[in-house]
Simulated assay, not measured.
Amino acid sequence: MSVTINAHQLGRLIDKTINHMGSEYVEPLHGIRLDADAKYLYTVASDRYTLAAARYELNHGDKNQEPWARTIPAEYLRSLREWIQSMKGAGLITISTAKDRLIFEGPRTDLSIAVTTGLEFPDWRGLLRSMVETTVEGDLFPCLNSGYLSRFNTGDILRVRFTADQKPAVVFSEDFIGALMPARFAGVYPCKEETFESAHKSWLWTLAAGSTDASLDGAAYEEERPLYDVTTDIRETGETLLQQALQSGWDMHGKSKEKPDEFLAHCLAAVNGWMAFRYLDALHNVDPRAAQAVVAEVADELDSGEIGEFAWDAATKAGFDPQKWHDDYEAHKQKLAEKEAAEAAATA
C-alpha cells in the first residue's frame, strides 16, 4: 500500500493540521493521522477541542486501492518536516506502510518512522459529517474560545458554518475542513451574556452614541493607491491576468481591419495574460509558497520600473543574445519604414 505526493504538498498537509494535535497525555491524538483512500491523501489531527483535516488529490486515481491509515507520532514530526524541507518542492515522495513502519522514499534519501498500528483514532469522517449535516437551529449566538481560533491561522480564507449555540462551528477552505468546539464543551463558562439580546442590551449605552447609517465605504476611507499598483496577493494577481486575457480578447473584435496594430496589441495581451495565468496556476498547484514568493518578487520588480533591465539580464543569464534580438528588431522596423515610404511615394 503506497501513495505518491510531491514534497511541498506533503509539507503543506502537515502544516495545516499540526496545530490541532492532542497532548502527550492522550496517545491516540498525540500526532498526525495519515489517511489514504482511493482518491485522496489526508492529514488529520484533533485535541478534542478542534479537529482539522487537509487533503491532497492523488494522481493515480486507483479506485481499487485499499484504504489505510497510520498515526505519525508527534515526536517524529519535526524530523519528518526537516527531511521534507531538505528536498525541492516538486520532488516526489512515495509513502508506504510496512509491518510497524511508515516509509517515506525521496529522490535521494529515505526515512522510516516507527508507528503503533493498534492506536484507535476517532472516526473523523463521521464526526465532521454529523456536524456538516446538522440543521441550523434558531437565532445563533455561538460562544467560542478565542485561544483555539489561532490554530486555524494557515493563511487561508475560511468559510464558517454555525449550526447552533452549543454545537461545533465547521470551517472550510481549499482542501481543508475543520471544526471548533463551543467553549462550554471545554468546561469553561461561555460568557456573562448567554443570549444575543442580553449582550446587545449591555452595550446599548455605548452604541447609542453612534449613527444608524455609519459606513466604511465612503471616499474618505478609500486607499490612496497610485494609478497602477502591483498587488503581491496571488489571488488578485490571478484575477488580474484573467481579466487581461478576457478584456483584450473582447477588444480584438472589430479592430482587425480598421486598426491592425491595435488588433495585434490586444491579441498579444490576451495570449500573454492567459499564458501567465496558466503558468502561475501550475506553479501554485505544485508549490503554493514558491508561487506566492514569485508574485511578491515580480511586484517589486514592476514597481521599480526597470523591466527592460531585468529582462535583458534574464535573457543573458539564460544563454540568449538580447543584443541580437534588439538589432533584428531595429532592422525589422527600418524595413517597415522603408516599405511605408515607398508605398507613400507610389501613391503620391
Rank of each mutant, 00 (worst) to 15 (best):
E224D: 09
P28D: 11
R101M: 11
D251S: 14
L144C: 03
R161V: 11
L29H: 06
G218N: 08
D328I: 02
G31T: 08
H266T: 01
G106C: 02
K99T: 13
P142C: 09
Y40N: 15
T109R: 13
D175A: 14
L144R: 09
L128R: 05
L127P: 01
A38K: 14
Q9F: 01
A345W: 09
D327L: 12
D123C: 02
Y76A: 11
D213Y: 08
G210K: 12
V294D: 06
I103H: 13
Y148H: 13
T195G: 05
E236D: 08
Q65A: 15
T134Y: 01
A337N: 10
E338D: 15
L92G: 01
H200G: 01
A341Y: 04
A38I: 00
E309R: 10
E57P: 00
A186G: 12
L216W: 13
L283D: 02
I14S: 06
Q334Y: 04
L77H: 10
T43S: 14
D328C: 05
G126N: 10
T237K: 07
D213R: 10
V115P: 03
L13E: 04
V271C: 05
A269G: 03
T154A: 14
A54Q: 04
P182C: 03
E236S: 08
A291Q: 04
G249M: 03
S23Y: 10
A296R: 09
D15V: 01
E82K: 14
N285V: 01
F277W: 13
L127K: 13
S215H: 09
K335N: 14
G187A: 06
L140N: 02
